[in-house]
Design a protein around this nucleic acid. Structure first.
Length: 771
DNA sequence: TGACCGCGTCTTTTT
DNA sequence: GACGCGGTCA
């Protein structure tokens, strides 16, 4: 057995790889070779003769799985590696759920609803219940349902749980339980699972079928989990159950990089690992091979401000490197220019190529200004995230046809394309069908299949149109027995005229739509060839079962080589770049004011910043703007408190003078560049005369400037005043710090006894005045 | 039924 | 600024 590759590891990496007898936790600091440990460990297991098919490796993204599999194949050979169970939780367990069809009430061809399908279904349920969608906001309802599912709370349990009912009642949305119940019934009827179902149903499968659980427990003799800090309760429990028999489980992660709590990720899973697995070995990887000492030390000094963490000593033995330059510009527009100019500088000096540079931001909306600036400087870039390929209208339309062909009961797919291209079946008819399906407790497809039998109140013309539509879909379904995915998708595109719909128009938009459809065809083609090569199925439903779990990250193209990368910090997790620009480091944006209502949330934002900094290998730039065009108006902002969290010895700060400057000058990295005129939005020619908004002060709160130029801060409220003592149903008693207006929302900042300061929306908070 | 217009709302991150 | 919704008109 050739184990020479183990010599490529450092001491702690090697120990982590070689320990295979029981549970282990690998705490991997940023850049410490986490992926290396995982791949080498799997290779190590394989070399010892453990069959690939008995190793389950769960990753966070498809891309991570693919890359890891590739590396393992290089080490141990393609044949040995091929049968590894490696993928995201969602893709692995959707495979298992399909294999175990019938045990969960879903067939093996179940559709996967993406978030917009879920939202759309929730929206129609809210409408059917005649509820106000301003109160029952679909997004909000979805997130409540999602949270419930991630915590394995079924609709019945949700309705029965008095705490949840009380919370919903206090939030004035007591009927969530009904929406949740109906939502689940409708999904089941449509033979559709949403993302969260994939985890929830897996748990139900294992809970209700001990024999099935036992089968997989025996089957998977070794389990590895990557990015364990970002697992939620549903994922935690799946892993725990599967590992119960052997306890040969190895989880890898970094608590300092846990940034997905909004998706239900629970950092306690990693913090409490040793309580779950009493005999667990812990390995710490602390040497960072990625970044300069300055970057590592700066990141350490930042994360040190977090209370909740596993202390570790991440260090780098690379060169000391450059200090992190912090820059301040007058507005977001100049910030973009600053970044673009600096990137051009690199090119002139031949220091870095474009693909070694990344620009990271907190929100996708920030990409726009930066994009403009890069374009002006003729810098090629690639934006990740935002509207992903598979969320584009034309792609979703084609996919919806495919979904309907494989599963005609898929309500969301039906609604989407029943009138695309226009065939005279409008909203009125669709609503009648939905109504009718509801009263007959059946699916819309059944109604269309037998219009007369269901007494659908439409005229003969409409009935014919519906019959024609049904014939189209039925014909495709017949073809699906003989054609592979590529042939069928091609037929669908041609026969439905989706493509020809765009032919008439030669606008740039339509050309891009055509290209996208061609791109999709290419992807299906590749899928079919790949599957054929491996002797696997390549029918349309096989394609669909994979495509619904793909994301933008998975569509890398060769043409994207040598471009600057632009993405959110979240999307950058796991990646590394020679040069990283972190833009928009402003209070209320980063940390995001929407996100932060507690110290716990603030710590997550801080971890997010930590992730951003540690992406950089050699150079890291941080910038913030004094004003920014956001949500249709210009807002003044203060530098992020996180900048102060970094030990200043690693930073070059903008000169203090610039910090508070009242003139139109801005600080920049090249002092000789001419100052451009500030760009302010509509009718905002005159700046407010007050300057104090530029002076850093506590609390660092963004002051909203209306277009009229008026400044609004704290406001009067008839009922609530600062210093009042109040009681909240969840947070208990506290004292009001301030009442202020955020946009149109009246908010209260309250210092709760023992719970710290929180910001609440007055209209929802239901506060009781104590004194 | 479908195209178009204007208004109001909502702006975080993603498998 | 962008999008979705509701209303109006052909």
């Amino acid at each position: 057995m050739d184990l020479a590759f183990l010599n490529e590891l450092n001491d702690s990496q090697r120990k982590a790889v070689e320990y295979t007898d029981g549970a282990s936790l690998v705490i991997a600091g940023a850049g410490s070779g986490k992926t290396r440990v995982l791949t080498y460990k799997i290779a190590f297991l394989l070399k010892q003769g453990i069959p690939a098919s008995s190793i389950l490796a769960l990753t966070f993204t498809n891309k991570a799985a693919r890359e890891m599999k590739k590396r393992i194949a290089e080490m141990v050979g393609d044949k040995t590696a091929r049968y590894l169970w490696m993928g995201t939780f969602h893709s692995i367990f959707s495979r298992i759920l399909r294999a175990e069809e019938g045990k969960t009430g879903f067939t093996r061809n179940f559709t996967v609803y993406d978030s917009s399908d879920s939202n759309s279904l929730i929206k129609s349920i809210i409408k059917e219940l005649k509820l106000d969608d301003k109160v029952y906001k679909p997004g909000l309802v979805h997130s409540r349902i999602s949270t419930a599912k991630n915590n394995l709370i079924t609709p019945a349990a949700y309705s029965a749980n008095s705490d949840l009912q009380k919370a919903d009642f206090n939030s004035r949305i007591p009927l969530i339980k009904d929406i949740y119940t109906i939502y689940c019934n409708r999904c089941k009827q449509a033979d559709a699972m949403d993302f969260d179902d994939l985890l929830l149903q897996t748990n139900l499968l294992f809970r209700n079928n001990f024999d099935v659980l036992e089968k997989y427990q025996r089957f998977f003799s070794y389990i590895l989990v990557d990015e364990y800090q970002d697992t939620n309760f549903a994922q935690y429990l799946i892993v725990k159950k599967l590992a119960e028999l052997h306890e040969r489980i190895c989880v890898v992660g970094d608590d300092a990089q846990s940034i997905y709590s909004f998706r239900g990720a629970n950092i306690d899973n990693i913090l409490q690992f040793r309580n779950t697995y009493k005999n667990a070995q812990v390995f710490k990887l602390e040497q960072n091979y990625r970044s300069t000492q300055t970057i590592v030390n700066a990141a350490n000094s930042l994360i040190d401000k977090n209370e909740k963490q596993i202390r570790k000593n991440v260090f780098s033995e690379k060169e000391v490197g450059n200090l992190i330059k912090v820059s301040c510009t007058i507005n977001d527009y100049e910030e973009g220019n600053l970044v673009a100019r600096e990137i051009t500088n690199f090119r002139v000096k031949d220091k870095f190529s474009y693909q070694q540079v990344a620009i990271l931001y907190r929100t996708n909306a920030q990409s726009r200004v930066i994009e403009e600036a890069l374009r002006k400087e003729l810098i090629p870039y690639r934006i990740y995230g935002g509207l992903s390929f598979y969320q584009r209208k034309e792609i979703k339309d084609v996919i919806a046809y495919c979904r309907l062909v494989c599963n005609p009961h898929d309500e969301e797919a039906l609604k989407r394309i029943i009138n695309v291209p226009a065939r005279g079946i409008g909203d009125t008819t669709v609503n009648k069908i939905l109504d009718c399906a509801k009263t007959h407790s059946t699916t819309p497809w059944m109604v269309i299949s037998d219009v007369l039998g269901h007494n659908l109140p439409v005229n003969a013309g409409t009935a014919t149109k519906l019959a024609n539509f049904k014939t189209i879909i039925d014909n495709f379904s017949l073809l699906s027995d003989t054609l592979n995915a590529y042939e069928l998708v091609e037929t669908i595109i041609k026969a439905t005229g989706i493509l020809s719909e765009t032919y008439t128009d030669t606008s740039a938009e339509n050309i891009s739509r055509q290209e996208n459809i061609q791109e999709l065809l290419k992807a299906v083609h590749e899928f079919c060839e790949n599957k054929e090569k491996n002797g696997e199925q390549n029918s349309l439903s096989d394609f669909l079962s994979e495509v619904s779990l793909l994301t933008d990250q998975d569509t890398d193209k060769d043409s994207d080589k040598n471009k600057v990368t632009m993405m959110t910090v979240h999307a950058a997790k796991g990646l590394e770049f020679k040069v990283v620009f972190i833009v928009g480091m402003e209070e209320d944006l980063f940390p995001s004011s929407y996100n932060v209502t507690s110290e716990r949330d603030l710590e997550e934002e801080r971890r997010l910043f930590y992730v951003a900094i540690t992406r950089a290998e050699e150079l890291c730039y941080i910038s913030y703007a004094q004003s920014r065009f956001r949500n249709g108006s210009t807002n003044f902002s203060n530098p992020s408190r996180f900048i102060d969290d970094i030990n200043p010895e690693y930073l070059i700060m903008p000169e203090k003078e610039n910090y508070q400057r009242k003139t139109n000058r801005f600080d920049n990295w090249d002092d000789d560049i001419e100052v451009e005129r500030m760009k302010f939005g509509n009718g905002f020619g005159s700046r407010p005369s007050r300057n104090e908004t530029f002076i850093p002060q506590q609390p660092k709160r963004m002051v909203k400037i209306e277009n009229s130029g008026k400044e609004r801060k704290e406001i009067q409220n008839g009922q609530f005043k600062p210093d009042q003592k109040v009681k909240h149903s969840i947070f208990g008693t506290g004292k009001i710090v301030s009442i202020y207006l955020d946009g149109a929302n009246e908010k209260a900042e309250i210092d709760f006894d023992g719970k710290g300061k929180k910001t609440l929306l007055l209209k929802f908070a239901k506060l009781e005045i104590i004194e």
